[in-house]
């Protein structure tokens, strides 16, 4: 079975074609990192994967269910995919615990005690047990992003999507977030990660995809892509970031 299958995906904003014929399969428990220069369409691709952006053409299947079919209940399908944003997007009017428990309580009909229990477990997982009653404004960037990850995990998704989860963080906080993501990968979570953290991609990814100008230029294992890139564009991009 494929967890995600992207077939001939195209996306335009007005006249600007941002994604031009993208094809990707993601296997269960696979960790895929997407890299590429700014504006190459990485975020747009990720956002199409849970239809925060409407694809212009092509199809996307999530665990065999057609995401692009208008008959699909998008709200239910999204529950199976967690999304972590660069800017965290925590709910500032809710405590850390409420941020995490809101989804399962309202959407899965779990009881208050059940979701509290789940919330505590997740906070332990991301190392923030003592912050349950705190409001997001009182957290550091790294802590916010770890709460955002816990919030996504609270829906018990089978796939996690990350859009540059560490790009808005002070350098000293990047490590703590990457560590949580590494743990997730080790637990067998299927993940698609847009990132500029090449070290992380090398270490954790099963496969790295290099995008440029709306195309997948090259993909392969980290060893293949980083140590032996085939395309000129990949080489020149890597020479700038490594």
């Amino acid at each position: 079975m494929k967890m995600i299958e992207v077939k001939s995906l195209k996306k335009s904003f007005g006249k600007l074609e941002v994604l031009k014929d993208i094809n990707i399969d993601v296997a269960p428990q696979e960790v895929v990192c997407v890299i590429g220069p700014s504006g190459s369409g990485k975020s747009t691709l990720l956002r199409c994967m849970n239809r925060l952006e409407e694809p212009t053409a092509g199809e996307i299947f999530i665990e065999e269910d057609n995401l692009t079919d208008t008959k699909t209940n998008i709200n239910q399908l999204r529950q199976r995919m967690g999304m972590v944003f660069q800017q965290f997007n925590l709910f500032p009017h809710k405590t850390v615990m409420e941020n995490i428990t809101m989804g399962p309580q309202r959407l899965k009909g779990k009881s208050k005690t059940e979701v509290k229990e789940l919330g505590s477990q997740l906070l332990e997982k991301v190392g923030l047990v003592d912050k349950a009653k705190v409001y997001p404004d009182n957290l550091s960037g790294g802590q916010k992003q770890r709460v955002a990850i816990a919030r996504a995990l609270a829906m018990e998704p089978s796939i996690m999507l990350f859009d540059e989860p560490t790009s808005a963080l002070d350098p000293e906080m990047v490590g703590e977030v990457l560590q949580v993501m590494k743990d997730l990968a080790e637990d067998g979570m299927t993940m698609v990660i847009v990132t500029h953290e090449m070290g992380f991609a090398k270490e954790v990814a099963d496969r790295v995809i290099f995008m440029d100008e709306g195309f997948i230029v090259e993909e392969g294992s980290p060893a293949e892509l980083f140590d032996n890139p085939q395309h000129e564009r990949t080489k020149s991009f890597l020479s700038k970031v490594l």
Binding site: L52, N75, M83, Q87, F91, G103, R106, A148, A152
Partner: peptide, 27 residues
Amino acid sequence: IDKGQMEAGRSIGFSYWQTMRLIVLPQ
């Protein structure tokens, strides 16, 4: 209200109206 709030609500699985009512409007 930052549009990231709507997107975060939707990505969890809330409908447009649920997100509006629970997340956007209270703020």
